[in-house]
Computed example of a mutant assay.
Amino acid sequence: MNDNTSMGNGASQQNHLNGQWQGQPGQQGQGQYGQYGQPQGGYQQGPPQGGWQQAPQPKKKNWFLRHKILTAILALFLIGSIASASGGGSKGSDSASSSDNSSSDSAAKSDDKKSDEKKSEKKDEEKKDEGDKLPAVGTPVRDGKFEFTITKVERGKTTAGSNEFLQETAQGEYTYVYVTVKNIGDRAQMMSESDQKAFSSTGQQFSTDTSASLALDGDNDFFLTDINPGNQAKGILVFDAPKGTKLTQIELHDSFLSGGVKASL
């Protein structure tokens, strides 16, 4: 009897322990996990309080990121179009600049031409004024040991000399310049016709035609003739110039080293 009582007491204690720690099915108590655990009788079924939460959806990429190859092609196309437009504009600008430069060059050349023409006209006027100021025909002029006097000028001659075997024919036309030369020095001096020069109204320079001068035979005393101090000699200086060319000045020298003196024709 004592044994049964002991066994009954043991069972009650065991049940008390089980009820304290594990609890009975269907009852809410501390259970296996104590006051922090779930209700006795196991886990509750069903969704958690507040309902199920839907998982977040991944963000969609934009069109350009999803089509990288097409995006790269479009980018290259746009870059090429911009470069082409820029190049065309540059060419147009270059063409305009080239046209402006050409116009400027043409205007500059035209101005230079006009300037040259004005200078030429001014030069001709100066020469004309100079010719007007030069000693006229019949006025003595001096250079070195010689005093020269132009006594007459004949133009438009086509031949020189009366002897048909010695006669000379002009390439253009002859201008005869009759000159008297006097030695004003203190020693003999030879008059050389090859040292004399004539000029046209445009400034062209002409030398004497020695062959034509020799063809004039007795009318010319200048060929290899020394003129003594105080004496004088007469002769004709012959210049061959194109037809229509008027010789307006003559430059006379007592030798090829002298400075010369000018006179009007």
Score class of each variant (00 low, 15 high):
Met1Pro: 05
Asn2Glu: 13
Thr5Pro: 03
Thr5Asp: 11
Gly8Asn: 09
Ser12Arg: 10
Ser12Cys: 10
His16Met: 12
Leu17Cys: 04
Gln22Leu: 13
Pro25Thr: 11
Gln32Glu: 09
Gln35His: 09
Tyr36Arg: 09
Tyr36Trp: 14
Pro39Trp: 09
Pro39Leu: 10
Gly41Phe: 01
Gly41Lys: 00
Gln44Glu: 11
Pro47Thr: 06
Pro48Arg: 15
Pro48Asp: 12
Gln49Ser: 12
Gln49Leu: 14
Gly50Asp: 09
Gly50Tyr: 05
Gly51Val: 08
Trp52His: 11
Ala55Phe: 08
Lys60Arg: 12
Trp63Ile: 09
Arg66Met: 07
His67Pro: 04
Leu70Asn: 10
Ala75Glu: 08
Leu78Cys: 14
Ile79Arg: 03
Ile79Pro: 00
Ser86Pro: 03
Ser86Leu: 13
Ser86Tyr: 12
Gly87Val: 07
Gly89Val: 10
Asp94Leu: 11
Ser97Gln: 13
Ser99Asp: 09
Asp100Asn: 10
Ala107Trp: 06
Ala108Glu: 07
Lys109His: 07
Ser110Leu: 10
Lys113Trp: 05
Lys113Asp: 14
Lys114Thr: 13
Lys114Ala: 15
Ser115Gly: 11
Ser115Ala: 15
Asp116Arg: 11
Ser120Ala: 15
Glu121His: 08
Lys123Glu: 11
Glu126Arg: 11
Glu126Leu: 13
Asp132Phe: 07
Leu134Asn: 06
Pro135Cys: 05
Pro135Met: 04
Val137His: 02
Pro140Asn: 05
Pro140Ser: 15
Val141Gln: 02
Lys152Gly: 05
Lys152Glu: 15
Lys152Gln: 13
Val153Trp: 01
Glu154Phe: 04
Arg155Asp: 04
Lys157Cys: 01
Ala160Arg: 00
Ala170Lys: 00
Gln171Pro: 02
Gln171Leu: 13
Gly172Ala: 06
Tyr176Asn: 03
Tyr176Lys: 01
Tyr178Asn: 02
Tyr178Cys: 04
Val181Glu: 00
Ile184Ser: 03
Met190Gly: 06
Ser192Val: 11
Ser192Ile: 06
Gln196Pro: 00
Gln196His: 12
Ser200Ile: 05
Gln204Arg: 12
Phe206Thr: 01
Ser211Met: 07
Leu214Thr: 06
Asp217Gln: 14
Asp217Tyr: 10
Phe223Pro: 00
Thr225Pro: 03
Asp226Thr: 08
Asn228Gln: 13
Asn228Cys: 05
Gly230Cys: 06
Lys234Cys: 09
Gly235Arg: 00
Gly235Val: 00
Ile236Met: 02
Phe239Cys: 01
Asp240Cys: 02
Ala241Glu: 00
Lys246Cys: 03
Gln249Tyr: 07
Ile250Trp: 00
Leu257Gly: 11
Ser258Lys: 02
Gly260Gln: 02
Val261Ala: 04
Lys262Pro: 00
